[in-house]
Design a protein around this nucleic acid. Sequence first.
RNA 1: UGGGAGAUGGUGCAAUGGUAGCACGACUGACUCUGGAUCAGUUAAUCGUGGUUCGAAUCCACGUCUCCCAGCCA
Length: 448
Amino acid sequence: MYQWAVELIKKGKAYVDDLSMDEIREYRGTLTQPGKASPHRARSVEENLDLFARMRAGEFPDGAKTLRAKIDMAAGNLNLRDPVMYRIRHAAHHRTGDAWCIYPLYDWAHGQSDSIERVTHSLCTMEYEDHRPLYDWYLDALGIFHPRQIEFARLNLSHTVVSKRKLLQLVNEKIVAGWDDPRMPTLSGLRRRGFTPESIRDFCERIGVGKTQNLIELALLEHCVREDLNRRARRVMAVLRPLKVVIENYPAGQVEEIQAVNNPEDAAMGTRAVPFARELWIEQDDFRENPPPKYFRLSPGAEVRLRYAYIIKCTNVVKNDRGEIVQINCTYDPATRGGAADRKVKGTIHWVSAQHAHALQARLYDTLFLAPKPDEDENWQAQINPHSLERLTNCVGEPALANAAPGERFQFERTGYFCVDSDSTREQLVFNRTVSLRDTWAKVEKGF
RNA sequence: UGGGAGAUGGUGCAAUGGUAGCACGACUGACUCUGGAUCAGUUAAUCGUGGUUCGAAUCCACGUCUCCCAGCCA
């Protein structure tokens, strides 16, 4: 690349300039007014060659001189007003160390690097459209293999930011735990969150490619994972916010093995046994002392089916001193095991046998930003969602979960898709909620 | 007279002179031991004004709006 710069000097298409950064800016003109030529623009080829060699040799301090392309100081496109190609930086490079003290600028490096690599099509985002004439100019001036740069609109996702600089800020300011924080729209973040590669590719295919400013709804990404995970994820029962249920007429000490299917979408995934006993955990959400209309779950006097097991009826609510519900007493109907019944029950809820329960943690994620377009706000950080992460530390899961490995994905029945996080230890499994299941009841209840 | 790009349902992408279509969302309903999944249906769009044409989202003219550019960042 250095040799190419020398070549441009020899062709009279580049010159060494002594102007300071501020002076260059001043000479560049404005959007509506043309710039004016630097006093050093007319230096001879010999002088330029000499000066450039001395720049490279380290004779001048940082910022003292630059190498600029000689194009057109009156161009409407500011990128063509004699852009800087090389500047002096006495700095160590992470690969070449102290070998160089002059470094090329992006525009000068871009096309030539593509050319060396024999890239045929160089894809980038729309903001580089103004740089393409320069990209082409360098390649043409050099007469080397000419790749073609094509610009496309970047993908904007709702309720997040995708700018690398903003993402970097989130990391630096510890707003997220790192680049792979499960809330980050990075590949490592999505992966840790539990998104499958297939679902991401499917998403990319569906959103297409265009040149218009866009804002893709997060709902589409979520749809893609749900669709993929629905097909592949093992179902399992886990209770996120446990509430104790005691089945009064079930023999103490008795344990039954209940068969449960691992994936209703794929019979080949088989079945497993889930232990059932007198004391169970159910979801706090699945009981209401004063149920709203159309509430199909458990409430005083009401019946509900325990998934794969029996129909139970709530007979009594036990509260503590503060009036909080701490336990539900029920009776079960022995004739209704595994779906058998002489009557219809509207609701089916998941459960975990208390004595067999495996303790686990769950991390529930919400969008990182409250507004669909946080970028629209000058102060985009004000849109950060303070509740984008909720840690639940008292969850329980069926025994089958005990030896889940990091990265493994499950569907917790009725709640969502979860992925074992890398923070998990042998004693304590941590699950990331990839995405919740579609919850039509939540929508109905919201309407009240 | 700065330069460049772009405007199609709520969202994203198609249709390049010939019935504006697909997906997501939203809303109905059916079914269901996951209020999951599935199935059926409904909703809703060509930035504006002229012009060319038998016929325009598409071609032409004028206008409107949005985005990007004044780093020795990438």
